[in-house]
Write a protein that binds this DNA or RNA. Structure first.
Lengths: 339, 339
DNA sequence: GCGCGACTATACAGCGCTGTAAATCTGAGA
DNA sequence: TCTCAGATTTACAGCGCTGTATAGTCGCGC
């Protein structure tokens, strides 16, 4: 029932009485094949149940039709959703997507470029967290590469991101329009800030200043762990310590979810006492109580543009690093409603 | 700066003045190589920056050291977390993991077995949703395969799952011990039930009967969409329609999250008015308000056992299908606390 | 000083497929 | 009927690597 050995191109060729190359041409839809020949070969293919061996093809062509998407952690909903979108978009372009978790560590991020993808992938899209693009470029092999996320210190590589500063400013402005005066920021790293956090904090500050509010470092709440529990613990501790806020911009939705819990458990009502804005607009933020207003990056556009750039590089484009900005939105829901 | 052409094994061999095979032996840690030779070759490798080309190796050995994990949808937190665990566990065994979404559709599930993995992966772990293992076996190629999820109609293939019936029964028992009498079930499919739903409903029913409660079909709430919003809509409609419950077992955590919102929005308190139990114990259920009591499958064990079985098949084991059950737990939190 | 066994290193073929260039075929015009 | 351009088909080499079989090397005991 299970064939001992896979059917090979040569088997089909022999069976159909033609050359191997002709079978190859038929299988790959090469145009200059006569209809009669095409039919004959297709019959043989069907009869023997032939399926091309991707390894052999890949070795011969030097292409694998696979791309890699590397990001910190699949368990963070944003990345899971991003991966989903990337998989769709790259499938639509005829590429399979290999998903790779870096753990958000320097080693993990370097490893992606240095070791892992060697020769099994045609290109890599990397969303770094610990390292910046400029640091990572040194480790780059000859595989085409596109960075996700806006590195403030632009590198020579292609890069796609939303405008974090503008988005954060916009989110703060939304809170200001709700009459909030003591607007905090939750969720950046306790250690050195990732560049994403840095940018969002920049925008947060800009938003405050634009509204004539004073930037107050005591309203910044870092978290030790990048998940919801870490955010809950951090904000909880700060609140218990006397922190007073009436608005909160979160670095990401996980922080917002943790914030919700920290606030509600302490009897603070959202949005009446504290209005909360998350970031990424992951699907679950529509189902919390209250649902969470969140900054929504255009992930489809993000994926499309990133793959555009990457495929151009794969096709041999040699050009300086290009930096593309894609759109975003503030998705208004219950945690920070319309004024 | 970027080498025009990758360094090949032959380049290293020439550079070190040895044969290609010797370099290969060094690179792959073949034992019978003299220390001096090993050192010389390693120096050449380092000097030229050689990295083995996985495509070539894969063609020569017939192995790719990659496995595929296929499941319905990455956006569902359970699968994202499962994928994360599988990736770790398989990395620990020296395999990379290719993640594949089937969309939960018959075509998607068939495609995984039939087209997609042809020759690029050494084995496949498939978590079906639309089709049962027995249906899928027909499409199986010669790639080793392990099913995830307990198909009530055991197939000839290997299978790993938790005991869904026992777990559901246990969850219901927990609700009963909280004094709940009208315990509903939320989240199975509106169309034909998946076998997972079927089993969990079986256990739900068994739990009720064991407690001497009557099984009442009007307490079953199906959802059209397999996400939280779908569950919220379904339960909301049922409640508005007069459904009265004081306990609720959900097919998965997304259903529980949707349920929370449907209940709270209608002024019902969880757990006082309605106690809720979710399923999968995804991390986010610790951060909702209230946090969600949930059935926790032992995913690490699930992944380990599945890979054990798969690797044995890859090593050529020829045996009838084996069916492994891994452990689970009811993780008690606020939505259905200890009595 | 020689022969043998145990290790090491090498040569060669080939994994399954595709690119290139050359061979073959077709049919129209002379 | 013959020639030649254009369209199909084929032969061959080789992508980068590893398994097998073979050759080479060394040390040791007689």
């Amino acid at each position: 029932m299970i064939p001992v050995k896979r059917v090979t191109l040569q088997d089909v060729a022999t069976h159909a009485g033609v050359s191997m190359k002709t079978v190859s041409n038929v299988v790959r839809d090469y145009p200059h094949v006569s209809p009669a020949m095409r039919e004959r070969v297709q019959a043989a293919v069907a009869e023997l149940g032939y399926r091309p061996n991707l390894r052999g093809r890949s070795l011969a062509t030097g292409r694998s039709n696979m791309l890699a998407l590397a990001f910190p952690d699949l368990r963070r909903p944003y990345f899971a959703e991003l991966a989903h979108v990337f998989a769709r978009v790259s499938a639509a372009r005829g590429y399979r997507l290999l998903l790779e978790e870096t753990g958000g560590t320097p080693d993990g991020e370097r490893a992606v470029l240095r070791d892992r993808e060697a020769g099994i992938v045609d290109g890599v899209v990397l969303h770094p967290q610990a390292l910046r693009a400029t640091d990572l470029e040194a480790y780059r092999e000859d595989t085409p590469l596109v960075f996700l996320g806006e590195d403030p210190q632009p590198s020579g590589a292609d890069q796609v991101a939303i405008d974090n500063v503008a988005a954060a400013e916009q989110a703060v402005t939304h809170l200001v329009r709700l009459g909030r005066r003591r607007i905090g920021f939750l969720g950046h790293e306790t250690g050195p800030w990732s560049f994403t956090s840095t940018l969002r904090l920049d925008g947060y500050r800009a938003g405050l200043e634009r509204a004539g509010h004073r930037f107050d470092e005591s309203l910044l709440v870092a978290r030790a762990e990048g998940d919801a529990l870490g955010a809950e613990a951090a904000l909880g501790a700060a609140l218990d310590d006397g922190l007073e806020i009436d608005g909160l911009l979160c670095r990401d939705d996980l922080a917002a979810i943790g914030a919700l819990r920290a606030l509600l458990v302490r009897g603070l009502h959202v949005p009446c006492d504290v209005a909360v804005v998350g970031w990424d607009a992951t699907v679950l933020t529509a189902s919390t109580v209250p649902s969470i207003t969140s900054v929504a990056p255009d992930t489809v556009e993000l994926a499309s543009r990133a793959l555009d750039l990457l495929l151009e590089r794969i096709d041999g484009l040699d050009a300086p690093g290009r930096h593309v900005t894609v759109g975003h939105d503030v998705l208004v829901r219950e945690s920070a409603p319309e004024p």
